[in-house]
């Protein structure tokens, strides 16, 4: 049994026929081949799969692809314009906010949404804002610095 959906991802409309149980994360990765969105768990804890759904950060493993029918999705691949990175991406690079890079796409998507809501967050607000994304490499310190740097660059 399949369902017809159309999801606009990074500005391009993608019609597709999908199983109702297909997760948005797998739709992005396996149907559209956008492998920047990572899957790090099976209990919606890690945040590696975070994307923007109609402008809001969501864990794409917690959304069925059919729920995104008609919606606008932005993934990590849709952020940079060529080689010109967003402030958040640039912040992660400048401040060494990543090591293995596996949590990074989700972390960046969460940070983008965080700064949209709160363009000048305190350290505590940044830490609280990314508490739903796990990183096992960095101890979060340089991620917090990266988001701080991005906020500064955006102001």
């Amino acid at each position: 049994m399949s369902t017809e959906i159309t999801v606009t991802v990074n500005g391009t409309a993608h019609p597709a026929s999908v199983e109702p149980r297909l997760l948005l994360a797998h739709f992005l990765r396996d149907v559209l081949n956008l492998t920047g969105t990572h899957v790090g768990c099976d209990t919606s804890q890690c945040g590696a799969c975070t994307v923007h759904l109609n402008g809001e950060a969501v864990k794409s493993c917690t959304v069925f692809a059919v729920q995104a029918d008609g919606a606008e999705v932005t993934t990590i691949e849709g952020l940079a314009d060529g080689d010109s990175y967003t402030n958040v991406q640039q912040g992660f690079w400048d401040e060494h906010g990543l090591q293995c890079g596996f949590c990074t796409p989700g972390m960046i998507m969460t940070s983008e949404a965080l700064l949209k809501q709160n363009p000048d967050p305190s350290e505590d607000e940044i830490r609280a804002g990314i508490a739903g994304n796990y990183c096992r490499c960095t101890g979060y310190q340089n991620i917090v610095n990266a988001i701080g740097a991005a906020a500064k660059a955006g102001s």
């Binding site: 990765r29 081949n33 956008l34 492998t35 920047g36 969105t37 990572h38 899957v39 993934t75 990590i76 691949e77 952020l79 940079a80 080689d83 990175y85 991406q89 992660f92 690079w93 400048d94 060494h96 990543l98 890079g101 596996f102 990074t104 796409p105 960046i108």
Partner: peptide, 21 residues
């Protein structure tokens, strides 16, 4: 020195095992 790995990793263009097709 800033990391040369990062441009691909901050743009979703890393290649992990699950990305091998």
């Amino acid at each position: 020195v800033k990391r040369t790995e990062d441009p691909r990793l901050i743009t979703g263009r890393g290649k992990y095992v699950d990305d091998v097709r």
